[in-house]
Design a protein around this nucleic acid. Sequence first.
DNA 1: GCATCTTTGACCTTCCTTGACCTTACAACC
DNA 2: GGTTGTAAGGTCAAGGAAGGTCAAAGATGC
Lengths: 150, 150
Amino acid sequence: MLTDYIAKMIEEMLNEGNGTLELQRNEMANRLGCVPSQISYVISSRFTPERGYVIESRRGGGGCIRIVRKQMSRNEYMMHFFCAIGESIDEGETIAYLKNLAGNGLISERELHIAAAATSNAALASIPPDRRNTVRAQIFKQIILSMMAV
Amino acid sequence: MLTDYIAKMIEEMLNEGNGTLELQRNEMANRLGCVPSQISYVISSRFTPERGYVIESRRGGGGCIRIVRKQMSRNEYMMHFFCAIGESIDEGETIAYLKNLAGNGLISERELHIAAAATSNAALASIPPDRRNTVRAQIFKQIILSMMAV
DNA sequence: GCATCTTTGACCTTCCTTGACCTTACAACC
DNA sequence: GGTTGTAAGGTCAAGGAAGGTCAAAGATGC
């Protein structure tokens, strides 16, 4: 299967580059004789933030895709949180989670405040109250993922 | 890519000049073998006010372009950002702002990622697209405030 | 046989590069 | 003091070079 082959290839290149890699989508697709979007597919299905990768890209002339592998260590802990959040979460519970993370030294005090602000009722004031906890859960999940990544 | 090269060049010249620089567009374009408007493009895409630069220019004989890297106090800087956000902001612009803050050492790389995640389209996926930028602005503002506080 | 994962291709968005044309400043000349 | 010539920089639109997205068709596994 092409996907596996490409994934293995990227994995190897990551090893060679000490966990960092920049590639050109078109160039690579050309070399492998596949369509460019295949590369996109592999990256989006295999090198996800959940699995500890950070992806950045730039379009236009000289564009490229950057893949960075982050060491998993405290990430399992984070993953636990991520799953625990569920579909919906209120402000108080969010803060409780954050305090837990801070208490365990997984995030700094400042990070706690930033995350609390981003998920506060103040930030979500314009969202109908009955939808607020759902949106908060989504934002919080993205935050947890970002904390795992770096 | 030419753009990156020129940007790097200007950056260096700014460092040499303690954050100030005067250049002649035609002369520089000539030296680099590119069209003059390329210089304009680099300046307008890379050395923007959002990223903390002030641009002045003079036309006519002996004309020049003046680039100054602003340094403001932390809170001035933050306040500047807070005001600049306005009612609505898209994902890309948000990231540009955050990168500026990180570039100036006002927030850490991790904080950048957290804030970017909290304001990402992914986090706001369940919000109708036409309202997303408004909600993002509100979340971002709360984040900026939290950054000023600690 | 249904669900899930792959593969492909058409179309979109972003970014870079170039060139034609516009505006402004200054200076020389009447 | 106007007029005009020339030397800057400003603007904008077109074209090209990437990567992004998404839906449909094809495999594959249970």
